[in-house]
Amino acid sequence: MAHAAEAIAAGKCSVALITLAGRPRSEGHSGATPRIRGADAPDTQWEFPLGVATVNAYAMVAARHMHQFGTTSEQLAWVKVAASHHAQYNEHAMLRDVVTVEQVVGSPLIATPLHRLDCCVVSDGGGALVVVSPEIARSLKRPLVKVMGAGESMKGQMGGNVDLTYSAGVRSGPAAFAEAGVKPSDIKYASIYDSFTITVVVQLEDLGFCEKGQGGRFVADGNLISGVGRLPFNTDGGGLCNNHPANRGGITKVIEAVRQLRGEAHPKVQVPNCDIALAHGTGGLLGSRHGGATLIMERE
């Protein structure tokens, strides 16, 4: 999105198309299966033989967060509970049943301390975004949504200075807020990448929605449920309940944020007066190395 907006602002194009699609479910992928991520990457010989799957890399982040900040499985479960409250209204969602904290922590442990219901779905799917110049946007007779600010960053194992308590969002978030000229309390709706419940907690902290270490408390008691809490998130049901095309969540996060800004989300989850929204994604593994991207948009 940010690259498309930059290209348009620089006059290199006036319409940009961004697409994503994949069929990991049909192809039999599982987040519990170790897979080689870049055989020629220098990190691979130090990771792949150890059985790094997706889920246990994120589980190490959760274990450390619990140890260092006292975060509980029940608090993490609230992320899934909120997603399920939203997914019940999405007829396309894979998982539409509302679940309770007890059901999440009572589901089988996959990689300690993460349970089956702490994990996102594996789904086929795709999405597309069209980014256009202001002149074209005004000719389209659709509600106008503008990019206010964006940030990108990366994080690795830092030559052994490993700190699993934060993500690349600590840099992409402030960059996006600075460019947009707004602060976390101005955000009416947030799409937050949710490969696992812990992913949401860490990223919310990094984006400044709460203090580092307070993410578990922040998400508890329905604080992410639209119409109930302070920060409605992933009102399509997110990766935890709706879909996770190509094992990624970025494009669906932007799509739902745009729906919210246009007032086109499901009426049961539409945030009233949604004028500023944020979308944040992570690519890679929070537990080893990843990129992070933050996008802030407004309704004109």
């Binding site: 519990a32 889920v55 246990n56 890399a57 190490m60 089988p108 996959i110 990689a111």
Partner: peptide
């Protein structure tokens, strides 16, 4: 940090 992988043919700890 440590995580015990339960959903695997042989349980292991990363």
């Amino acid at each position: 940090s440590v995580s015990v992988m339960k959903r695997a043919p042989e349980v292991y700890a990363i």
